[in-house]
Design a protein around this nucleic acid. Structure first.
Lengths: 215, 215
DNA sequence: AATTTCACCGATAGTACTATCGGTGAAAAA
DNA sequence: TTTTTCACCGATAGTACTATCGGTGAAATT
């Protein structure tokens, strides 16, 4: 079947990737409680004991999953920002600021679900990762809003900006969940609603700057 | 110490309540993975085996927790609606539609967290409960919006209404989490932001009705 | 007063998982 | 070719939890 006889290190690496892939699938389907060395090893086609050739222990696997998920997520966010900068005209660019993250989420729904779940689970070794990721995304979005002209003079201004960023994230996530669950099949309708909500917080912009972001 | 010598059934009921109280505490602090018969029984001050005097098995406890959480939640929602109807003037009533659910959530943060967590956890026996609860709340909110005058003629209208309701819930939850975590200490600031977002979706109201909800 | 009920106890069988250990054969190095 | 390395294997010790069982004493019933 395979034309290439794999070298030992290549074979090991392949097995490790199979383990990680299997782990993500189990995590998504059964949750963290279902993620055992027995199941992961079996799904990857090796003996349970061989799991420990690739990972020090169960925690070590979780750490690897967190690292990889974080890496994918950061790459997706970079890509989203890049694409948003390249959007043709202003109104389409505004829609893109919602459409692009939505598409990114829907591209890796399992990763998204895992993060969403770990976010509020104190027993999850991935909670730290999820909390940091959402905090980073929030700060990131707050900076974008500040660049749009939202006031940041007082402590209260900055807090409000963080709340708005937090709100946008929550809205985006909720709509993505609805789309993934099949309740909102049309992404453009979802973007319409997000744009509608955005008209609300854009009113917090000083009047002079408002034209740049809204309408 | 205690003046009353308890009857047998009273004592049993007290023990059952202690078990449920302990279970909620453990669920909140350690997540579902930490909820074992050993820990619950110990925390309630009885032997592990005596757990089965009160519950058929572990599932049965989870079911009882779900029932009780659902009951508390429905009571809170009824109370919130009652208070919202009694609000003095229109602008304050509009703020109340956000403030009251927020206060309800902050009144039982552990219940809220547990629900939030179970919502996306396929391994949780509470997932069904969480999904149904959020769907019920969404439908409920959508009905309120329809009563405000949002169009519901087409399928698309109704879908949009559901998205808006979903969005409002997500915003409220996100703000409540921020408040509970200490990031947004002032609830009035939180309400300000929710009102700002609401100005956005209120634009979807037909112009004639808009004055009733906004400003 | 005699009897029954039952909430609780300690002990334990059964289950599922984690992690370690010595052995094996093929790839890699000598 | 000989030796070494190492990814993988089966077996198994150790751990944590679930659920059952017979026994006990005090409350409830007769």
């Amino acid at each position: 079947m395979t034309g290439t006889p794999l070298s030992r290190s290549e074979a090991k690496d392949l097995t490790r990737r199979r383990l990680i892939r299997a782990a993500f699938a189990i995590l998504d389907e059964e949750g963290e409680a279902g993620l055992t060395t027995v199941k992961v090893a079996k799904a990857a086609g090796i003996a349970q004991s061989s799991f420990y050739v690739h990972f020090k222990d169960r925690q070590d696997l979780l750490r690897a999953l967190g690292d990889q998920a974080g890496e994918r997520l950061r790459a997706t966010m970079r890509e989203a920002r890049r694409r948003a900068r390249e959007a043709p005209d202003d109104s389409e660019r505004h829609r893109d600021t919602f459409r692009i993250p939505l598409e990114a989420i829907c591209g890796h729904p399992e990763l998204f679900r895992i993060g969403l779940r770990a976010r509020h689970d104190p027993s999850s070794p991935l909670q730290g990762f999820a909390v940091e990721t959402s905090a980073a995304y929030r700060a990131h979005l707050a900076a974008d809003l500040a660049a749009m002209g939202f006031p940041t003079g007082t402590e209260r201004d900055r807090r409000r900006l963080e709340m708005v960023a937090d709100g946008i994230t929550a809205l985006t996530n909720a709509m993505a969940v609805g789309h993934i669950e099949g309740r909102y099949p049309d992404l453009e309708e979802v973007v319409d609603v997000l744009v509608a909500f955005s008209k609300g917080y854009l009113r917090l912009l000083p009047p002079a700057r408002r034209a740049a972001g809204a309408e």
